[in-house]
Amino acid sequence: MRRLPKDSPSSEITPEPLFWRRREFMKNAGLIGGTALVTGGSLQWLVGKSPPPDAPDTPPLPIAQLPSVAQHGQYDTAEPLNSFKDVSTYNNYYEFGLDKGDPSDNASGLRTRPWTITVEGEVANPQVIDIDTLLQWFPLEERIYRMRCVEAWSMVVPWLGFQLSDLVKRLEPTAKAKFIEFTTLFDPKQMPGQRFPVLEWPYVEGLRLDEALSPLTMMVVGLYGKMLPNQNGAPLRLVVPWKYGFKGIKSIVKIRFTEQQPRTSWALAAPDEYGFYANVNPAVDHPRWSQATERRIGELQRRKTLPFNGYGEWVADLYAGMDPRRLY
């Protein structure tokens, strides 16, 4: 026969009303906590963003194998640089996602070697150039440029590259060539953002030939003295500092010289909001927001946006006689 446990002494028995209150309290506390957890958790899932990833650890550019790096300085700004972390983790590169942190999260799968650039169209020497061959053609130069995004923020970036004009001269466009058109890689496996028709893929950008020949226009292969991180457009991108950032097409696989103005991606997606020229102009607002001011990343207060992003003394002449309102 099993022995029943002895009764507890009556002093240890919780008085009944207290028992019920404590029980109710515990139950309520649990329910409140559970509700808070479910509400807060799902809310944070919908609203919150994870902190930005760490800056990528890109291998330093093998300078030893390359022609010497020239220091010009004529076009450089003396403004403080944005950090490598900001430059490499706050990006618009829709091929890798729509949030600013997505490209640094998703671009590591992009293979930038082997990589070739096809040159075609109105050009004396159509050819396919290997990126490592291209890197031997011109001395690399550091240029510290302001970068003004159409979304009204800006950065100061030390790019590493060469003047597009040097490349154009070497490729010898024909007399018919009036424009130059660039195309980004199209590979939805490597670029997951291309699985969604946010823009017409692949991304296409272009310049008028005289814009391409401006000494300010750069083909960029690095930043901060290192290889270009994938999310910044490795292995080869365009930088046109007096135009909004979206003109700076990334991960270029094709350069085509044309007689007609190229059909560029953003101008196709929203022609009344983004034009072919896209020159930085504080007097011409984006239809949905002002372009008069910008937030320099890292600064608290907005600052005034400069015409041609402050590069007017070198490029304003290109647009003599044109209506600046058409230059958005």
């Binding site: 329910l31 409140i32 906590g33 559970g34 509700t35 808070a36 957890l37 479910v38 509400t39 807060g40 958790g41 809310l43 944070q44």
Partner: peptide, 8 residues
């Protein structure tokens, strides 16, 4: 519970 969660 909701008030608590709303301020997460």
């Amino acid at each position: 519970g909701i008030l608590l969660g709303a301020f997460v």
